[in-house]
């Protein structure tokens, strides 16, 4: 409701004036309301008064921040956070998304998907297909990859993801620490590969460049891999074994940078 003259009763029902006081107007609308206030003293007085009362109330509320710490409240906070975390995890595990994922895992033939995924790039490179055929092949392998995926987690659910991955891998999995190198985790996935469960972490830096880290249990019948750094066509990759887990890291960076990133993961 916007009007130039108001009765006192109307002012309180004027959404524009409310939003003006609460700072939720767009710049254009703000200018319109300010122009109106310049010629409407009653509305000007009302908005000034509402804002002033709000400020007084807020200042009084903020004195709560100076109250002594309350240990009982702190203990209840911890208990509530634990309960809500459990609630979140339970909701995820019982939710429709995981149900669909579980169904896709059931129909997945172990080994076939991994083979298709990891051989796809060489097949595409080795043959000269028209571009639309390459695009179709990429789509086909992407679907195969999706069927291998057991779950995907967003950054805010990373703690829950790590718990779940650790449970699936029957050992403690920690998130790679790449933050100090300017990378933030974008998502995490758990994939069923030939070798067993594979935890994949996708990171991104401020320029939007991605780095992917994978962690999987090391096969007990194979020797540990010493750190090896490889230069690919456009990407660099490093892989190694540490404490019963195989790690790999790949990204569109040079060999020196991938070595630095690998060292950060190994820390």
């Amino acid at each position: 409701m916007t009007q130039d003259t108001n009765t006192e009763q109307d002012l309180g029902l004027d959404d524009d004036l409310m939003a003006y006081v609460d700072g939720t107007l767009s710049p254009e609308k703000m200018a319109q309301v300010e122009a109106r206030l310049a010629r409407d003293p009653e509305a000007r007085a009302a908005t000034a008064s509402w804002r002033h009362h709000d400020n007084l109330i807020r200042e009084m509320a903020q004195t709560a921040d100076d109250l002594p710490a309350n240990m009982r409240i702190a203990a209840l906070e911890r208990e509530l956070a634990t309960k809500l975390q459990a609630r979140k995890r339970r909701a995820f595990l019982m939710g429709p998304a995981l149900g669909r994922i579980a169904a896709s895992v059931l129909i997945f033939t172990a080994g076939w998907g991994a083979h298709g995924l990891f051989s796809s790039s060489s097949q595409l490179r080795g043959a000269e297909y028209p571009q639309f055929v390459s695009a179709t092949l990429t789509g086909h392998y992407a679907l195969q990859y999706a069927s291998m995926q057991q779950a995907e987690f967003q950054p805010e659910d990373l703690d829950m993801a790590l718990d779940w991955m650790s449970e699936r891998m029957q050992r403690k999995i920690d998130s790679p620490k790449l933050e100090r190198l300017g990378y933030e985790v974008e998502s995490a996935r758990l994939v069923s590969a030939d070798s067993g469960p594979l935890a994949i972490f996708h990171f991104r830096d401020r320029q939007g460049d991605r780095v992917t880290v994978s962690i999987t249990p090391h096969a007990p019948d194979k020797a540990d891999y010493a750190l090896r750094v490889v230069r690919l066509d456009t990407d660099s990759m490093a892989y190694w074994t540490d404490a019963g887990l195989d790690y790999s890291i790949i990204g569109d960076v040079d060999v020196g940078q991938i070595t630095t990133l690998a060292a950060a993961v190994r820390e």
Binding site: I57, M60, A61, Q62, T63, A64, D65, L67, N70, R72, I73, E77, R78, L80, A81, L84, Q85, K88, D159
Partner: peptide
């Protein structure tokens, strides 16, 4: 994290409760 979120909201609840009750003990 959820813990940090709960802590943040509890501080808000404490501010709100202080205005509602006008008494720090009653607010807590």
């Amino acid at each position: 994290s959820l813990k940090a979120e709960v802590t943040l909201h509890t501080a808000s609840l404490r501010r709100y409760a202080l205005v509602l009750t006008r008494d720090p003990t009653a607010a807590d």
